[in-house]
């Protein structure tokens, strides 16, 4: 087996006496579309916070492209190629949409580039994501769907190898979900591995090649969407007995 893009080994995280994650291992391959699901409070967000560096785990390791990143700060991980979008959009609201993208293009880049070059690259990403016509709008005044797109666009501007999409579709209408899903497929076609955390099952099932299910901080199932749907443990976690 070739080396996975992301390799999480026996990761545990406690908040006081509460065990948020208990020895969870998972791996994501290069360019893979990976789904992470589970009921509310199962530890999905804690898991991606540990992967992106917002939280430090107590035990276990996070390897990215073979490198141990367990003790690295979020901005260092972003530079290595782990980018994330936020569940609740967090735009740089004093800036225009284009300027929002220029921040990671300037700071996450491996080498320095000129302003004009960064703006060009930002425009290219906005065109890909479908926000080009709003490039010079104030990011604080965008609609919900455009905010979600901006979240994805800004994560893409860090030129990641792994994109973590944290509930990018929560609260969107059916056609809007399809729109975001389309964008994620497009990004994935460019070789970016994607971890999708989502409650919109239709979307995760369609998107993911492989899914891991968390419940109460433990991994209870792993497999293809079909296997997951037919797994009695998963059914129990979501619906009870």
């Amino acid at each position: 087996m070739t080396q996975p893009l992301l390799d999480v080994q026996e990761l545990s995280k406690h908040f006081g006496g509460f065990t948020a994650l208990d020895q969870v291992s998972l791996h994501v391959g290069k360019g893979e579309r990976f789904g992470l699901i589970g009921p509310n409070g199962s530890g999905k967000t804690t898991m991606i916070n540990c992967i992106s560096g917002a939280l430090l785990n107590e035990s276990g390791r996070v390897l990215f492209q073979g490198q141990d990143v367990t003790r690295l700060k979020p901005h260092q991980r972003t530079r290595l190629g782990i980018a994330r979008s936020f569940q609740l959009p967090r735009p740089f609201s004093s800036m225009t949409v284009l300027e929002n993208l220029c921040i990671p293009l300037e700071y996450a880049a491996k080498e320095r580039s000129r302003l004009a070059r960064r703006q060009e690259e930002a425009m290219a990403i906005l065109e890909l994501i479908g926000l080009a016509d709003k490039a010079h709008d104030h990011s604080g005044g965008l609609t919900q769907i455009d905010m979600r797109k901006l979240e994805l666009a800004r994560a893409m501007a860090a030129k990641p190898d792994l994109l973590i999409s944290d509930e990018a579709m929560a609260g969107l209408s059916g056609s809007e979900v399809d729109e975001i899903l389309d964008r994620l497929f497009t990004l994935n076609e460019r070789g970016v591995g994607v971890i999708m955390i989502e409650h919109v099952m239709k979307a995760v099932m369609r998107f993911s090649q492989r899914i891991v299910v968390l419940d109460a901080g433990a991994k209870i199932a792993e497999g293809t969407p079909d296997e997951i749907v037919n797994n009695p443990l998963v059914e129990k976690a979501y619906l009870g007995e």
Binding site: S52, A54, K73, P74, H75, T78, R79, A83, R84, F86, R90, P91, F92, S93, S94, M95, I103, P104, Y107, A108, A109, R154, A157, A158
Partner: peptide, 15 residues
């Protein structure tokens, strides 16, 4: 400016 607008998002953008 990115820190002023949103420190968490800034850190995740590589700042």
């Amino acid at each position: 400016a990115a820190i002023r607008d949103d420190e968490v998002a800034a850190e995740c953008a590589g700042v």
